[in-house]
């Protein structure tokens, strides 16, 4: 019986080790986990979003005034510079005047990091390469055959796939590789914030709740012990 258990254990551990491939044609996505507590990073991420994403992708679950409050942006910058559509009020959602369903099939990005995960998005944004067989002229290692054109090429420069299947830079963009990676981290941080604005308060205040219950447990334990003495 014990031998059987052992065999079972070995067999199961073998079964467990077979990992899942959920990063497109890549073995593994690049490690990254978003941080929504770096205000400047979120603001920079918003900047990239407004410049490169907002012309196609809505954030239809996020309100302008929520963004204003959480990212500490002066109201006049929101109303005068960021809201570019007339009749949009500050309490409205960030749809940038686009219809509910995108005519070109660009998905709404509010919940995207929750659907795909931070790592997927971070890797996806950085693995575009030139592919003339695609209508958009570019392809992606993570989302093979993506319809999205490489709008970030101006920043990153163009990449191509060499015969070994790795990405090589073929032209320079306005940013160095590190600068670009940092920018994409900002963007993913911003998207992670958009996916769950409450995450800022949640992660900030959770510590106090847990500390309270640690004290609670300690006091209750003393109380219990006082009475448990009689149970000897």
């Amino acid at each position: 019986m014990k031998k059987l258990l052992l065999i079972l254990l070995i067999l199961s551990s073998y079964g467990f080790s077979a990992g899942e491939n959920n990063c497109g044609s890549l073995e593994k996505c690049d490690a990254f986990s978003s941080n929504v507590h770096d205000l400047y990073s979120l603001q920079r991420g918003l900047g990239i979003y407004m410049n490169y994403c907002a012309s196609c992708h809505t954030l239809k679950l996020l309100r302008w005034n929520r963004l204003q409050k959480d990212l500490v942006i002066p109201e006049n910058i929101i109303t005068e510079e960021l809201i570019r559509t007339p009749d949009t009020k500050i309490a409205d959602h960030m749809t940038f005047g686009m219809p509910d369903v995108s005519p070109i099939g660009a998905p709404d990005l509010t919940l995207r990091t929750r659907v795909r995960g931070d790592e997927w998005i971070y890797t996806y944004l950085r693995t575009f390469y030139e592919d003339p067989s695609q209508t958009s002229g570019s392809n992606n290692l993570v989302y093979v055959g993506t319809a999205m054109p490489n709008v970030l090429a101006g920043l990153q420069g163009n990449q191509a796939l060499d015969t070994g299947g790795t990405l090589v830079s073929i032209s320079e963009g306005s940013m160095t590789a590190e600068e670009f990676d940092d920018s994409m981290k900002d963007l993913v941080n911003f998207l992670a914030y958009a996916a769950e604005p409450a995450r800022i308060t949640r992660e900030k205040n959770g510590v106090f709740v847990i500390l309270f219950f640690i004290v609670f447990t300690a006091v209750m334990n003393l109380l219990y012990r006082e009475y448990a003495k009689e149970l000897k």
Partner: peptide, 22 residues
């Protein structure tokens, strides 16, 4: 349990008050 109580009333009262507050 009821036969041999080991009671420290002050301590008990203090603990009861603290835990009720919690």
């Amino acid at each position: 349990v009821l036969k041999n109580p080991v009671v420290n009333n002050t301590r008990r009262k203090a603990l009861m008050i603290t835990s009720s507050l919690m």
